Computed example of a mutant assay.
Amino acid sequence: MAARDYGQYSGISRAVELIGERWALLIVRDLLVAPRRYGELAAGLPRIPSNILAARLKELQAAGVIRRAPRSRVIVYELTPYGRELEPVVLALGAWGFKAMGEARDEQVITPASMIMDLRSAFQPAVALELPATAYAARLGDAELFIRVNGSALDVSGGEGPVDIAFATGPAIHRLISGELAPRRAIETGQVEVLRGRGELLGRFASTFHLAA
């Protein structure tokens, strides 16, 4: 039984009953990146009270969206096949919500999982098909991402490897993705710092990942 019952016989109302409670969809978002232990989920959602996290995990398990699984002698939470069907929904919501983001507030953080999903939302495979394969390293606040684009294939992870360009930035990455901040201007004003590689490749990044604000 869902925590909230809207009393309507409708697919949308049922979906909201299952994943519409506060924090539930962000838990799903983070598990779309990778299975996580309880502590990893808590660390990725620093404002979630522990009792709420426990309650949401229990509700999502009861709904068949997530499950507990043993991994190397620890228990992780992972999406079920039913839960993974939410990926296009989450990506579409991310693209839709991007239009209303505005400027970042001082207390807001960028987590690795949130940025990975934002990049997945912004990825333009049709554009990438016309560009050479490129690897990027992006330091976004405390998040460090390794981004590989090869045609219409995208891989974003917290790993590392050889890259064509490495850069550091913060919330300005969202202005870059929206087209509000031109790549050259971003570098000139110090909003993006090129750590190594060719700075002009930041323009390729901005073309490959784009969401209209």
Rank of each mutant, 00 (worst) to 15 (best):
P125K: 11
W96S: 08
V74L: 10
R56M: 05
K58S: 09
L119V: 06
L45I: 11
R56V: 06
L129F: 10
G83N: 09
N51S: 08
E107D: 13
L79M: 08
R105E: 14
I48V: 14
K99N: 02
G102R: 06
G83C: 06
P88Q: 05
P70H: 03
I110Q: 11
L119D: 05
R120A: 04
V127P: 06
R120D: 01
E130D: 14
E107I: 03
G102Y: 05
E40C: 02
R73N: 15
A63D: 10
P35D: 04
L86A: 12
R73C: 07
L93I: 08
V90M: 15
R37I: 01
W96Q: 13
E103G: 00
E130Y: 02
E87W: 04
L45W: 13
A42G: 01
V89F: 15
Q108S: 05
D106Q: 10
E78N: 04
K99P: 00
P46L: 09
R37V: 06
D106A: 12
M115H: 03
I116Y: 00
R56K: 11
V89M: 14
I48Q: 11
G97Y: 13
I116H: 01
S72F: 04
P88Y: 03
V89K: 09
I66V: 15
Y38Q: 10
A69G: 00
Y38A: 09
M117C: 03
L79Y: 11
T111N: 14
A55C: 01
P46D: 09
S114I: 00
G44R: 14
P81L: 04
L60T: 10
R37N: 05
D106F: 13
V76P: 01
P112F: 04
P49H: 11
E59P: 03
M115C: 10
V65Q: 07
P88C: 03
P49W: 11
W96T: 02
L119N: 04
A54L: 07
K99S: 05
P70G: 07
I66H: 05
P112G: 08
I75N: 09
M117T: 03
T80H: 12
A34G: 02
L60K: 12
V127K: 10
E107H: 13
T111P: 12
S50L: 12
L129A: 14
Q124P: 01
R120L: 03
L79S: 08
V33N: 09
V90R: 13
P81W: 06
P112S: 07
A54E: 07
A55D: 13
P49M: 09
Q124L: 07
P35C: 02
Y82Q: 12
M117K: 03
P70M: 02
L119H: 02
R71P: 00
R56H: 04
A113P: 02
R105L: 13
S121D: 05
V90C: 11
L93Y: 12
V90T: 07
Y77F: 12
L41A: 01
L41R: 10
A92E: 15
I52W: 11
V109M: 15
S50F: 02
G64E: 08
Y38L: 12
L129M: 14
T111A: 14
A128H: 11
R71H: 09
R47M: 08
R56T: 07
Q108W: 15
W96V: 00
G44L: 13
P35N: 06
E40D: 13
F98M: 01
R73G: 14
G102K: 06
R71N: 06
